[in-house]
């Protein structure tokens, strides 16, 4: 794949929260407004790109047996520096995101990309991958945040959209709204993919094991199972 393809795959084909269904903790928790979504997304782009670079540069030095610990140390150092930067320059956003900034350390996307991509590819490709996936994450969070803010608060980036007569649909900015929105968006994306596949006459795009990259036994186990056992019959 070219660098451009590595970059663009994160924007739709492997969009983290909606296609890979990774990093759901911040996706559900901080997207009460579009601004929070964009802030969280930019923070993740920063950590993800730098962690991809560092992991990719050190991929021959890190021993296979302790690689997860090493990835976590790299991500944690980056997050600490990000926290200090946010405290210095965008303190109000830091206050709003709260505990979810330090929690970027354990964000599945950071570890997932380090393990599945940066540990196997060169620095340039890793940068493209980190930027693409990070941008996809930002877009997803901003979209979800906009949806919830517009419906649940009647505003977008703080701008009043509907005037005073609008009664906000408050459940959308509360916890259940996040699950409802995410479920509907996932259904919508599956619908679009199926429609596209139907139009071009191909199989619906499934990200499957190729994008996951991890060598988990459960997947192989599932594949070895007969067809009706998979359906849970």
């Amino acid at each position: 794949m070219t660098l451009m393809q590595e970059f663009t795959k994160g924007l739709w084909k492997e969009m983290p929260p909606f296609r890979l269904v990774l990093g759901l903790c911040p996706t559900l928790a901080v997207t009460t407004s579009a601004e929070n979504g964009i802030g969280m997304g930019v923070a993740v782009v920063f950590v993800l790109t730098l962690s991809n670079i560092l992991v990719s540069m050190m991929r021959h030095i890190i021993p296979k047996a302790v690689r997860i610990a090493c990835f976590i140390v790299i991500a944690a150092s980056l997050v600490v520096s990000l926290e200090l930067l946010m405290q210095a320059y965008v303190y109000s956003l830091y206050e709003k995101l709260g505990i979810f900034v330090p929690l970027i350390v354990v964000n599945c996307i950071i570890l997932g990309r380090a393990e599945a991509f940066a540990a196997k590819n060169g620095v340039a490709a890793s940068i493209a991958d980190g930027l693409g996936i990070g941008l996809g994450f930002t877009m997803a969070l901003t979209f979800l945040g906009s949806l919830r803010e517009i419906l649940g608060n009647g505003t977008w980036f703080g701008m009043n959209l509907f005037g005073d007569a609008f009664e906000p649909f408050q459940i959308m900015v509360k916890a259940p709204g996040a699950f409802i929105c995410l479920g509907l968006i996932l259904a919508g994306m599956n619908c679009i993919n199926r429609w596209q596949a139907h139009r071009t006459g191909t199989e619906p795009v499934s990200i499957g094991c190729q994008a996951c990259g991890a060598s988990c036994k459960s997947c192989q186990l599932q594949m070895a199972m007969p067809e009706d056992a998979k359906k849970g019959v």
Binding site: E167, P168, Q170, I171, P176
Partner: peptide
């Protein structure tokens, strides 16, 4: 429940 959480006043 959806209404009770969204529009407590009404």
């Amino acid at each position: 429940a959806v209404l009770f959480i969204s529009f407590p006043v009404h």
